[in-house]
Design a protein around this nucleic acid. Sequence first.
DNA 1: AATGAATGAGACTTCATTCAT
DNA 2: CATGAATGAAGTCTCATTCAT
Lengths: 215, 215, 215, 215
Amino acid sequence: MPQTDDLRSSRIRQARRRQLIEATIESIAKRGFAETTLSAVTAEAGLSHGVVNFHFASKEQLFVDTLGWLAEEHYDHWRRALDKAGDDPARRLEALVRADFAPTVCSRKKLAVWFAYWGQAKHRPIYLDIHNRHDAARREHLETLCAALVARSGGVGAQPERAARLLEASIDGLWLQLLLYPEGLDRKEALASAMAQLAALYPHHFEPPTAPLEG
Amino acid sequence: MPQTDDLRSSRIRQARRRQLIEATIESIAKRGFAETTLSAVTAEAGLSHGVVNFHFASKEQLFVDTLGWLAEEHYDHWRRALDKAGDDPARRLEALVRADFAPTVCSRKKLAVWFAYWGQAKHRPIYLDIHNRHDAARREHLETLCAALVARSGGVGAQPERAARLLEASIDGLWLQLLLYPEGLDRKEALASAMAQLAALYPHHFEPPTAPLEG
Amino acid sequence: MPQTDDLRSSRIRQARRRQLIEATIESIAKRGFAETTLSAVTAEAGLSHGVVNFHFASKEQLFVDTLGWLAEEHYDHWRRALDKAGDDPARRLEALVRADFAPTVCSRKKLAVWFAYWGQAKHRPIYLDIHNRHDAARREHLETLCAALVARSGGVGAQPERAARLLEASIDGLWLQLLLYPEGLDRKEALASAMAQLAALYPHHFEPPTAPLEG
Amino acid sequence: MPQTDDLRSSRIRQARRRQLIEATIESIAKRGFAETTLSAVTAEAGLSHGVVNFHFASKEQLFVDTLGWLAEEHYDHWRRALDKAGDDPARRLEALVRADFAPTVCSRKKLAVWFAYWGQAKHRPIYLDIHNRHDAARREHLETLCAALVARSGGVGAQPERAARLLEASIDGLWLQLLLYPEGLDRKEALASAMAQLAALYPHHFEPPTAPLEG
DNA sequence: AATGAATGAGACTTCATTCAT
DNA sequence: CATGAATGAAGTCTCATTCAT
């Protein structure tokens, strides 16, 4: 039956694409962008040499789709975290922060890949687009939630735009430190530092943690 | 006179090296790492094809020396800022933060290059080494100064290690945002945000700025 | 059927390797080692630029495999000649000598290639290895056969080691003269001289030829 | 005084040429033809990079002149040996043979260089020319002397042309074996083998040596 | 839908040669 | 006479892409 065949074919195609994208992530993390050849990707995936051009128009398209997949995974992750957080703005903000330090999105492998893409952001507008498209919603949530906490805050907390920016900056900066000083900082301490940042911005809503947190 | 000749020869070599390193920075910023071919570099420098291997053992060595030059430039920059800042810990801390947003080190060009290198940090230990070697001193200063401000602080400020980490993370994160959202954030507002971070950590020593600052 | 595919694929690869090795021999003979570029080889073979590195790890490996092929061809050649020669030591020795002047192994093209490799023997131990590995068996046969003829011999023939060495040296030296004086010496006269050498060493077993021989 | 200056200048030039030629021989022996770059030569000579093109029109000319120098050295060497040998043909022939195994001309270094040149003979007619020009006289002497010994000889010795050819071939072949099997054969045993060759050709005039000879 | 041999553009690198000093 | 920085042609090798099977 042709229809069934098409369905099966389509499922296989999806599976192959996914397989190749994951191999690409693996390879970028392991070898970096420049050394990630299509041979490296197909070898990683256990597939044959010429298969990439069968599922992706070009190497560049594979990279673009890989970033898209990564961005979507991240998006889905914090959206789910937010959905489970209830209605209290402080709890929602905390959930957003915690989401970024969950093992799935905050492994050293994933961080290496994120920074590999960011390292090319300036001259690859398409990467910037994909990233910003997915991140805009998160920025808005951050700002809205910061604004909701303003009432009882003085100081920086009273400037929700800056507070949101600093929150995001700290998280990104902690990610960078996780990448650059793997021995000086682990994921739990990075999370604790991020929670401390919340406490610094909104002392009426958050307590600075005194020890590393369980992520 | 041989000695004079040697001196002149050495000066010429130094000048060429510098010229090529600057062309490399220009090219990485413009084209990214992968597209920075030696032809691109020599064309940028207005020199002939083969010069690079005359002054650098290999392309990789050119990249290594370029990062070294960049790291040293940054180091010299904040050391000078610190020297001019006097003895008051708060002023010294502020000087350190301001230094990172000065036009020379915080142009979009330089940021693109920094993140290009960081994007390869995981699989190029040599890049990590060079970066960390120069950065360790700065981290120590940050932590010492944070510790000096602890006395009148509660909250996060009372944890100098975390405070220093958050300060550095915010700065790096703001750098990333300057790179990723050139239209959403300029250097002055980034500096204002960094000063706001100081105010959040040490409210007794710093006021949150109410408008973007002159860098 | 995968197995069939593998077999076909393997046959194609073998054929290409052989094709490239023969083109290499052709090119070394025509242009010499230094001028034998990969372009020259692929042009000779009527193939595209990049094939070589597809079938050989490097240019050097191509050269090594070419010498290996040459050495094996020579080995097979004299083994077959020996097999056909019967049991009489004198006939076997003669067969061994004649084999080295057969058109297939003693063309000016092949000689040029052999001496091209020998010209690099001192600083390319791998070439020496390959050559000696294949030649050791031949030296042993020569010596054993010389020893078998000793009984009725006086003079040099009574020293089988030296006799064997001189036999091999004369053959190699005649090869060199064929290469260096193509107009002063042809293959048939070289063979006659080699047979004369047998007669000089073992006058009871061999007659010096009076005219050039048919090879 | 201009004339004096010219003389001095000329002497210096001659010295430099000689210095560079010897460095070339050294380098060909050590690295082979292909790896002998002009840098290698000047480094070997302890001179500066650009000096070669000042004394030789091109790299190729340096190689040609080096071969010329080598050929002349060899020529002078056997001429002197011949001059000292007296009038007896047998003694003269022996002198000629012994000359080729003297340490100065028969070091492994020199052999490597000779075979390096011969390895290119086929496609570099100029090398062939230089070699043959110097060698023709030697061949003639060999043949004349062989002819002079014919009277009391039967067998191969009665064919002076072939005898001379076999004598030369054995010597060249022994040279090749010295190059290829440095551990299986030393200069003294090679000389003994060459004397044995004389004995094989002219048993009435020469005795086969029973032990290696002092060269 | 997959394989993998083949292509050829383009990268890095070497090096003979030139030339200002 | 000599130096050594500079040039640029040419070589080897890599690898994205194509395509017959």
